[in-house]
C-alpha cells in the first residue's frame, strides 16, 4: 500500500501570480493521489484572491484538500473564501476531516488552521489579562478540534494538516523570539494522541523542512519558500524504507524499489 501525497503551503495567490504553479500542477496527477494545501492560499483573504486560488488549484484531476492560514483571515471574508474554494471542488478543513480512497487505501486527513502559543518551556499560559486568556484559548480550542478530527476518521493512513506548526523543529531558521507566533505544542499533543502517520504545515517561511513530534510523528514544513518548488511529494506506505529518497522522472515518479 502506497499513498502519494503532494503538498505545498503559503502560495499567497493574487492576480499577479496566477499561472505560475499551473505547469507543475498539470504534471501532478502523474506524481500524486492528492494535493494538500497548508494554508495562506491568498495574500489578504479576499473573495477575489480566492478566485485566483480556484483557477490555479481547481480541476487538477486529483482531490485537493486545504486548511486556511492567517493571511486568509485578513479581510474577514472567510465564508466567501471557503465558498469559492468549495465551488472549485477544493475541500476546506477546519476542525474536521475527510477520508479519500487512494488506490484502494483510505487516506484520512484531519485539518485545522491552528494558532500560536509557543512550545514546551516557552509557551503562553491561560493566566492574567483577558487578552492573554483569549490568545491561549484560541490555541487550545484549535488543538482540541484537531484532536477530535483525528480521532473521528476511519482510515488506513492518517495525516494531520495545519497552517501553524505543531513542533519547533521545523521552525529552525526563524528567530526563536517569534516561535510563539508560529505554532504551539498543543497541536503536536493532538497529533501524538492519534495514530497519525504524517503532519504537514506551513507558515514558517524561514523554517526547515523536517521534524518530528515528541511522540515520533514525522512533521514536514511545506511552506513554499521552504520547499522552493511547486509542491513536495511524499510516499506513505508501511513497507517503505524510512527516509529513502528517489528520483522523479519526466514520466512520473520512479520508486526506489523499482
Amino acid at each position: 500500500m502506497v499513498i502519494r501525497i503532494a503538498a505545498v503551503g503559503d502560495v499567497h495567490l493574487d492576480e499577479d501570480v496566477v499561472g505560475r504553479f499551473r505547469p507543475a500542477l498539470e504534471e501532478l496527477p502523474n506524481h500524486a493521489d492528492v494535493l494538500l494545501l497548508a494554508g495562506d492560499l491568498t495574500r489578504h483573504g479576499t473573495e477575489a484572491e480566492a478566485r485566483c486560488v480556484a483557477r490555479e488549484f481547481g480541476g487538477l484531476g486529483v482531490p485537493v484538500v486545504t486548511v486556511l492560514g492567517n493571511h486568509d483571515y485578513q479581510c474577514d471574508e472567510v465564508p466567501q473564501v471557503v465558498e469559492v474554494l468549495e465551488e472549485a471542488g477544493i475541500t476546506v478543513l477546519e476542525g474536521n476531516g475527510t477520508v479519500l480512497d487512494c488506490s484502494g487505501s483510505r487516506l484520512g486527513i484531519a485539518g485545522v488552521k491552528g494558532f500560536g502559543g509557543g512550545f514546551a518551556g516557552r509557551c503562553a499560559a491561560d493566566f492574567g489579562e483577558p487578552e492573554m486568556k483569549a490568545f491561549v484559548g484560541a490555541s487550545t480550542e484549535s488543538a482540541d478540534a484537531l484532536k477530535a478530527a483525528l480521532h473521528s476518521l476511519d482510515c488506513d493512513l492518517l495525516v494531520a494538516l495545519t497552517h501553524y506548526s505543531p513542533v519547533p523543529d521545523t521552525l529552525a531558521g526563524e528567530p526563536p523570539e517569534i516561535y510563539a507566533f508560529l505554532g504551539c505544542y498543543q497541536l503536536g499533543q493532538a497529533i501524538d494522541s492519534a495514530p497519525t502517520t504524517l503532519a504537514l504545515h506551513g507558515h514558517a517561511h524561514h523554517g526547515t523542512e523536517r521534524g518530528t513530534t515528541p511522540g515520533g510523528v514525522r512533521v514536514r514544513n511545506v511552506a513554499h519558500p521552504v520547499i522552493k518548488q511547486a509542491y513536495s511529494v511524499f510516499h506513505l506506505g508501511e513497507h517503505l524504507e524510512p527516509g529513502e529518497v528517489s528520483r522523479m522522472g519526466s514520466l512520473g515518479t520512479r520508486p526506489a524499489w523499482s
Binding site: R20, R220, Y231, F234, H235, L236, P242, G243, V245, S246
Partner: peptide, 14 residues
C-alpha cells in the same frame, strides 16, 4: 522570487 518548478525527488515515509 520562490521557484515554482515541479519537484525532482519524492520522499518516502514508512
Amino acid at each position: 522570487v520562490v521557484r515554482a518548478q515541479p519537484p525532482t525527488e519524492i520522499e518516502q515515509l514508512p
